[in-house]
Nucleic acid binder design. Structure first.
Lengths: 297, 297
DNA sequence: GTCTCTGTCTACGATTTGGCGACAATGACG
DNA sequence: CGTCATTGTCGCCAAATCGTAGACAGAGAC
């Protein structure tokens, strides 16, 4: 039995004086009201309503129960209101800019779940590898994978993004496998544009930092393209592990120089430095932290 | 959504610290609890529970909501109790006939609770495996475990009763374990009298229905006796699971032929086909449905 | 590294919800 | 007094929801 539905029906019957009118106000049929009241009476073992023609009135027990039930329903509504408004169900449009690769590979399922949780929200997502200004370009939040940096923009770190040096086994068979960072100078690199390291790779290990200017043959601002070209044996790429994950698992790519790491990147949410972050932006960012914070980059 | 169910699930999760434990206490599956909490959060537009591995704890909003929800649930129970008890309780004598095994094993605690709720009632219970006519023999209600059937008697289905084929491990050690229903022909069966299947067992599986006339050495109209004889290794029994439950748990009995099922039985309440079922009978039957309806037969 | 328990998710059968329409009862009205 | 309109109940049935089983991935315990 839908106990809450029964209580609402009962309270409305007592308030309105009839099943039919209660049904009209609750948008339920007379038979539904009748069943609710009947089941409530059965479960309590008490008659609550005296049915006379064209009128329904509470019994003495019914009147006492009505007072308590009405109070309980009001308290429940108040509790719901209070908790909803403490974090009022966000509505409106949330505009998000995210990097292409991350957007296509990782953002979809998370956004789907976010939408399920906050059905009143509408999301506009632009996948672009251009670093868009969230203020000037009209986004609520911009997701970026970047190195740790201090910036005038306000950012929240979502998750670390590990990068690896990798190439296809066929490349290593033809060109040999670099053993130390300096070996990379004699190899073809597939380079990401727009990163601060530009065409110079920094790799750090127990023996300190290495700055390498590899012989780059490709510079592109999309790591998926770099991955795909690397898979075809055209060079060595330095790309986020999450982009290479499937290729690594299948053997299409192999990582090298495991004792060296590139400067850590992270996924950041960048948002306008307003005094109060809007609720929907905060919820979205919190949601990303919750979902991606547990992921191993 | 069953809002009250969600509230109970939520309160129990906060109290117990986990979805799994809340499920155990509420006799619901983990996925049911997960759905309830998820729907509650969606409907309120608020995250109430932080899920970490092996632990669930309330968010700040969730803690506040928990306090109000727990209070509301307590008030509702109190209101129900107050109105149930205020009613001039049903009085008089309720005469019940029930099967011996079910009566001795399952009915006592339920009857005790029923009597607590309706202290003005007096119950006369006759445990008998004879199928007594509720009109002729003066009972208000007769409980029977039987196969689904059409009958001129009016009946209300209380709960399903699953049967299993089982014997003591010592029996299997001496005689081998049947792998398919037909193997039962070469085994000693302990047979229940009075059932429609009589001395012929019907077992159904993916390969169709099997009618087996096992070599019976005992035919008795009491499944407890069958269980006890089976425990002593004297044969294979086809008996209700609730009767065998303790022996199965302790290892005194082992079930076989899990891919096959006997025709489903159910516990029925049979009552006179009068126009208005008396209040006390209706309350008793509803009470049984409430208590046994959720049990796994 | 393996095991066990967790929470999520999907598919699906069981159960409940809720409306339709028939019915009997009865007050309003002419 | 007869008729009409509205009421509440009930059986039937389609739609919706409940709740589980089982698969899965994550992670703490050992």
């Amino acid at each position: 039995m839908d106990k809450l539905g029964s209580l609402r029906a009962f309270v409305k019957v007592v308030e309105s004086g009839s099943f039919a009118e209660a049904g009209r106000q609750l948008r339920l049929s007379r038979s539904a009201i009748s069943k609710y009241i009947g089941e409530l009476e059965t479960s309590l073992g008490v008659q609550l309503i005296v049915r006379t023609t064209r009128h329904a009135s509470p019994t003495e027990a019914g009147q006492r129960y009505f007072e308590r039930a009405a109070s309980i329903l009001a308290e429940l509504d108040a509790a719901d209101q209070a908790v909803s408004q403490s974090q009022s169900a966000p509505r409106g449009i949330l505009r998000v800019n995210a990097p292409m690769s991350f957007g296509t590979m990782r953002l979809g399922p998370v956004v789907a779940d976010f939408m399920a949780r906050y059905p009143e929200l509408q999301l506009q997502i632009v996948l672009s590898d251009d670093l868009l200004d969230p203020v000037q370009d009209g986004f609520d939040v911009t997701l970026r994978i970047a190195e740790l940096e201090s910036s005038s923009l306000v950012a929240r770190r979502i998750m670390p993004v590990e990068r690896i040096v990798c190439a296809a086994p066929s490349y290593f068979e033809r060109h040999g496998k670099p053993q130390v960072p300096d070996d990379l100078r004699r190899h073809t690199s597939l380079t990401y544009g727009f990163l601060l390291t530009g065409n110079q790779w920094k790799l750090s290990g127990a023996d300190g930092d290495h700055w390498i200017q590899p012989a780059w043959s490709l510079c592109v601002n999309n790591a998926e393209v770099l991955r795909d070209v690397a898979i075809k044996g055209q060079g060595i790429a330095l790309i986020p592990r999450f982009i290479a994950a499937d290729a690594l698992a299948s053997g299409a790519l192999a990582a090298i120089l495991p004792d060296y790491t590139a400067p850590p990147l992270a996924l950041y949410a960048i948002y306008p430095p307003t005094r109060h972050l809007s609720v929907k932006v905060r919820l979205f960012i919190d949601f990303l932290v919750e979902r991606f914070g547990k992921d191993a980059g």
